[in-house]
């Protein structure tokens, strides 16, 4: 009990590409669950399987403990916001929001539309055509259309990625507030780890068709299960020497058994990140209170590290700057 959503051994291929590979997942009631992964890893496909637009090749989807795998989308009572909002272009804002109410034959349409519009601050644009409103407003309308009825959970496919940076930050915090107010389950898909960090109660990192790690964001950074996650999560990829991974701030500059030749110093607020190469060509990034010139040799020691499994290929992104 308590599980809102359960995926059991889901697999999905398009032709020869296996997008989802025997994936299982449980999402709790009221949880803000973030699916994080680079683009093309099957995040949208996963949401489509949950909502019922795509059928999995095998496996089952449970919502509120009920097997919905064979149910069409309109029988699953889920709400979804698509990446580009998919607003109905022939309807005005009001009718877009009213549409799910009409389809579910819910009463008091007018009152509900106005309530949700007030909540999302779009009352003034209710009579506008959807091509007359800004991207930020479109995002709110899509959100309003999702929350206007009482779905059993919400699925959001990168709803912030189309917004300008400014609008994106406010929209992000508003979304989190909204979820807490509604006290509903959200599954939120993104490729942006900052969003995952800010929003997710738990974050599932999607790679090769499965969740390579599911934990809170802090653990993704501090205790990555694989070198790939260490590389993907964080502003800088994790440093790896002999299958031991360490973050830039886990090393101490000055003395130690390792050394590297500096290629550049990058300033971030009042500290510096020193990029360099070790003698064997391994790229290293270290945190330092002062900059170093290109070509300088820096000695350092590693104070804290994680042991990765053997045979884990060091990720590509290590090619030094």
């Amino acid at each position: 009990m308590g599980n809102k959503l359960e995926l059991r051994n889901i697999s999905k291929s398009y032709g020869r590409t296996k997008v989802i590979d025997n994936m299982s997942l449980e999402v709790e009631e009221g949880e803000f669950f973030v699916v994080l992964g680079p683009s093309g890893t099957g995040k949208s496909t996963l949401l489509k399987i949950i909502v019922g637009i795509e059928q999995p090749d095998s496996g089952k989807v449970f919502i509120d403990g009920r097997d919905v795998t064979r149910l069409p989308p309109n029988k699953r009572n889920l709400a979804m916001v698509f990446q580009n909002y998919a607003l109905y272009p022939n309807m005005n804002v009001y009718n877009n929001i009213a549409f799910p109410l009409k389809m579910h034959r819910i009463r008091y349409i007018d009152r509900k539309v106005k309530e949700v519009a007030a909540k999302l601050n779009i009352t003034e644009i209710l009579q506008k055509k959807i091509y007359q409103i800004s991207g930020g407003q479109q995002q709110r309308v899509a959100l309003a259309r999702a929350i206007v009825r009482n779905p059993s959970m919400f699925l959001l496919d990168e709803p912030l990625s189309n917004l300008d940076a400014r609008v994106r930050y406010t929209a992000r915090s508003e979304l989190k507030k909204l979820q807490q107010e509604l006290n509903q389950t959200f599954v939120f898909v993104t490729h942006d780890q900052k969003e995952a960090e800010a929003l997710g109660d738990r974050v599932g990192v999607l790679h090769n068709g499965v969740f390579e790690q599911v934990s809170d964001y802090k653990d993704l950074y501090e205790k990555p299960k694989t070198a790939w996650i260490g590389d993907f999560v964080g502003d800088f990829p994790i440093n790896i020497i002999d299958n031991k991974g360490f973050r830039p701030e886990w090393a101490k500059i000055g003395s130690g058994k390792f050394s590297m030749t500096v290629s550049l110093s990058e300033s971030v607020s009042d500290v510096y990140f020193i990029h360099g190469l070790m003698d064997d060509g391994t790229g290293i990034i270290l945190k330092s209170p002062k900059p170093f010139g290109s070509g300088e040799v820096v000695h350092f020691s590693v104070e804290k590290f994680i042991e990765f499994k053997e045979a884990e290929n060091p990720p590509q992104a290590f090619s030094s700057v």
């Binding site: 637009i53 069409p72 989308p73 309109n74 709400a79 998919a86 109905y88 549409f99 389809m103 259309r145």
Partner: peptide, 22 residues
């Protein structure tokens, strides 16, 4: 756009409602 069809189904429209009303 294909996505509008999907959106309509998620919003609760049946197959024929989607076909005629969306």
């Amino acid at each position: 756009p294909k996505q509008l069809e999907s959106q309509a189904r998620v919003d609760g429209a049946g197959f024929f409602q989607t076909l005629y009303q969306v």
